[in-house]
Every structure is written in C-alpha cells, then in structure tokens.
Design a protein around this nucleic acid. Sequence first.
DNA 1: ATAGGGCTTCCAGTTACTGGAAGGTCAAGA
DNA 2: TCTTGACCTTCCAGTAACTGGAAGCCCTAT
Lengths: 134, 134
Amino acid sequence: MNIGTAADQANLPPKTIRYYEEIGLVTPSRAENGYRDYSENDVHRLRFLQRSRSLGFTIDECRLLLSLYDDKNRASADVKAVALEKVTEIDRKIADLQSLRDTLATLAKHCHGDGRPDCPIIDDLAGEAANAAT
Amino acid sequence: MNIGTAADQANLPPKTIRYYEEIGLVTPSRAENGYRDYSENDVHRLRFLQRSRSLGFTIDECRLLLSLYDDKNRASADVKAVALEKVTEIDRKIADLQSLRDTLATLAKHCHGDGRPDCPIIDDLAGEAANAAT
DNA sequence: ATAGGGCTTCCAGTTACTGGAAGGTCAAGA
DNA sequence: TCTTGACCTTCCAGTAACTGGAAGCCCTAT
C-alpha cells in the first residue's frame, strides 16, 4: 500500500513515516513507479512505533522495543525493565515539574497582579528577594 | 569583567552566555583586546535569565520577562499572567506524564518479567491486546 | 488534455544549547 | 625574555524528532 494509506492505518503523518525509514526503523519495499509499498507487517511496526512514542519512549528505546517485538525468544523481563526504567524517568520529570509549579504558584500568589510595578516574581527572578519560594 | 567571571557569577556556562548574546538577550561591551566585558547590570540580566530558565520559562518568555524587568512602569499583572500561564502549562504536562506513567506502570505490573517471551507490554504496543491500560 | 491529489527527493528550520577546532591574548614563572 | 597554560575569540557541526516547503514526477478522473 502507498504511504498515505499506511499513514492512515498507523495514525502517523507521512513525513514521520519517511523519517522513520530514513533512520532505519521501517523500510518498505518500492513499487515499480518508485512509490513506497508498505506491507501489513510494515504497518504493524509503524503502529507499534506510534504507540511506543506516544507512551514517551525515545526513538532509541523504540528501536530496542521493536527488536524485542521481533525477537520471539525475548525474555519478558527485558521488556519490563525498559518499561520500569521509563516509569522511574517519568516520575523524576513529574517531581521536577511539580517543584517548578509550586515555586511559580507561590510567587504568583504573592503578586498583587495590578497596575503597579512592584512584583515579587520579578524580584525573585532578579535574585533580589529573600527566596520567597524555592 | 571577562566572560569566565560573569559565568561564575551568573552560574551559567560561557557557551550559554555567548549564545544569549547571539540571540540578543545580553550584549556586553568589548574590551580593547576583543574580549567581552560584562558590567554588573549584564551579570544581573544573566542571573535573571538563569533563574527564569531554571523555572521552566522558554527563551522567548525570558525575553518578555526581561523586558518587564527593565520596564519600571510595568504592571505586575502582566508578570503574574506570564507566571500563571506557565503554571497552567506545567499542570498540563504533569497530567500528561502522570497518565503515561500510570499506563506504563499498569502494563509493567501485568508483565511476569521472567525468561519467557509472553509480554503484555509488547502486546499493548503491538495493539494486539484489549487495551490493558490506556 | 488537463486538473487535482499524491508521491518523490532534498533542504532548511525548530529549541536551547554543547562540543570541538583553529587561533589570538594574557599573566606568571624560569 | 621566553614559554606555558589558562582563557578568550570565531565558526561549524551536532543534538531529538520531526515539520514545512520547494521542485518535480505519477496517477486517476473528467
């Protein structure tokens, strides 16, 4: 099938699919006219990629996951390890964001938010304040 | 002062400081020998930038914040709006990450994690499973 | 025949730096 | 005075994962 159809079935833009080919993730055969020709298996792999990416895995992690997907002798422990590592990473990101959020919210709460220039947010950013929030 | 000293005082790498100059954020004068020469005010602006960036503001937002910092007739409401918008954005990111995290954790929990190939994580990614987790 | 839509490749831009090469400058020590 | 090493300069390239756009070929329907 053509790239447009594959794109619809995998829920990925054609541009992205070409990119995945360029980096060696999914390499379709070519029709006589030079068009990419995607097999069912190619589409499966594309769907696998879109799902993996949407779950936050990097391209390199997707590469690994794809190889595990292909490996019928894989150990599920290997897959689980990748997933759990990602969970830990996400937890760290969430904690970081939470901390930023709290700092910003505290600063904003202390700001009058009126027409006057006094602003604890600016003061904090300028480092002139006694750390209203860290 | 030279870029190295400014870097120490602003807690930013020299490379980053040069980059900030390139994009027009902080433009120091030059000494006779061609070296950048940072004033106290330049360093204040650099510190302002490092703090703003560390709080998650993009470069463009920092540009805006810097202009508010410079504007002695600013309305604190404008600053507060920027901060609150960022809080909202961060909240959204946290929610997204939380959802990913939960999905992954659920998938991992259902995975035996042993030497056998059966793996609900792979099944989910392949879209072959009845959405164990969404 | 022509119009449109889809396909091709290739190049550039995005964010916010970071690394590295090639070379000039400065201060301290032998 | 010379040298050494740290520091400074500019410029180019690379990062992650696409995305937009240009120029041009192909296919189908009217």
